[in-house]
Computed example of a mutant assay.
Amino acid sequence: MDLTNVSQAKVFNGWHKQYQHTSSVLHCDMRFAIFLPPHASAAQPVPVLYWLSGLTCTDENFMQKAAAFQKAAELGIAIVAPDTSPRGEAVPDDVDQSYDFGLGAGFYLNATQEPWKTHYQMYSYVVDELPGLIEANFPVTSKRSVAGHSMGGHGALTIGIKNPEKYASISAFSPICHPSIVPWGEKAFRHYLGEDKALWKEYDAVELIKAHNVTTPILVDQGDADGFLDDQLKPETLQQAAKENNVPLELRIQPGYDHSYFFIQTFINDHLAFHASQLLND
């Protein structure tokens, strides 16, 4: 499989690198970023945290803004950040070029509707193709966890819940918890998946908790000054579903914090330590 190194920089004695490759799942060229901690080697491979970013983001937002590398280097965890949607001239976009649908807004699902289904297969890309590529080309183990922010928090929750054998832990900042009932999710699901709301449930964390026996530990942080809290995120629906189904969810409401990467910076070390407790536990 082709893999082109786009950039690299040493950081906290580890390496941040960007790569481009041709995705057979998304039918376009894709870019991802990886952080490798100092001791990562063929003789000492490390586990991986997959980070899924939110609307309008690329592989760069988390890597440049989250201030995660020092703690990841200390813990000995690699971090992989894919793009948030397929890209390229052949990839369809929202006709109105809205920020919340189309390019930059793949919602980590497999689209079933035209013209989206050829390229918008982000679920399969994140769950299958990308980890296969990472594990074949970098000094990492097959132990994985998944985390994300906003749309990416939705992705982390749904992907982690549906694949308990592949992810040791799940965390999210400000996730879209119940996308089937909020404007962002309704718009994306209607276009990507059609009008069959039974299919929507396959990509809705609240509905998945009701349908699956979830034993994977989950950590969620949510700021109470988040402008999207009441209309788009609805963490109380996730908390209620988790309580009713005995899911090991810790939801922390953080006073005064908004939806930004300043919020993520503040609590990212907690999330990395949370994942390390599962990934490094033999």
Rank of each mutant, 00 (worst) to 15 (best):
residue 4 T to K: 14
residue 7 S to C: 04
residue 10 K to C: 05
residue 14 G to D: 01
residue 16 H to S: 08
residue 17 K to E: 12
residue 18 Q to K: 14
residue 21 H to R: 09
residue 21 H to M: 11
residue 25 V to A: 04
residue 28 C to S: 09
residue 28 C to P: 02
residue 31 R to T: 14
residue 33 A to K: 08
residue 34 I to Q: 03
residue 40 A to S: 11
residue 41 S to T: 09
residue 41 S to E: 10
residue 42 A to D: 13
residue 49 L to F: 11
residue 55 L to F: 11
residue 68 A to L: 09
residue 70 Q to A: 15
residue 72 A to W: 03
residue 73 A to V: 04
residue 79 I to E: 01
residue 81 A to Q: 10
residue 81 A to V: 14
residue 82 P to D: 06
residue 84 T to M: 08
residue 84 T to N: 11
residue 86 P to N: 02
residue 92 P to L: 13
residue 93 D to Y: 07
residue 96 D to E: 14
residue 97 Q to Y: 15
residue 97 Q to R: 14
residue 98 S to T: 12
residue 110 N to H: 06
residue 114 E to Y: 09
residue 123 Y to T: 01
residue 127 V to T: 05
residue 128 D to F: 12
residue 129 E to A: 05
residue 134 I to D: 04
residue 136 A to S: 15
residue 140 V to N: 02
residue 142 S to D: 14
residue 148 G to T: 00
residue 150 S to Y: 14
residue 151 M to V: 06
residue 152 G to V: 07
residue 155 G to T: 01
residue 168 A to I: 03
residue 182 V to R: 00
residue 189 F to R: 00
residue 190 R to M: 11
residue 191 H to C: 02
residue 198 A to N: 13
residue 199 L to Y: 06
residue 202 E to S: 13
residue 213 N to Y: 12
residue 218 I to W: 12
residue 219 L to V: 01
residue 221 D to V: 05
residue 225 A to G: 02
residue 227 G to F: 15
residue 228 F to C: 03
residue 228 F to S: 06
residue 228 F to M: 08
residue 233 L to D: 03
residue 233 L to Q: 10
residue 238 L to A: 04
residue 243 K to S: 11
residue 249 L to N: 03
residue 251 L to C: 03
residue 253 I to G: 03
residue 256 G to D: 14
residue 258 D to R: 13
residue 258 D to F: 15
residue 263 F to T: 04
residue 265 Q to R: 11
residue 265 Q to E: 11
residue 268 I to Q: 08
residue 275 H to R: 03
residue 278 Q to W: 15
residue 278 Q to V: 10
residue 279 L to Y: 07
residue 279 L to N: 00
residue 280 L to V: 02
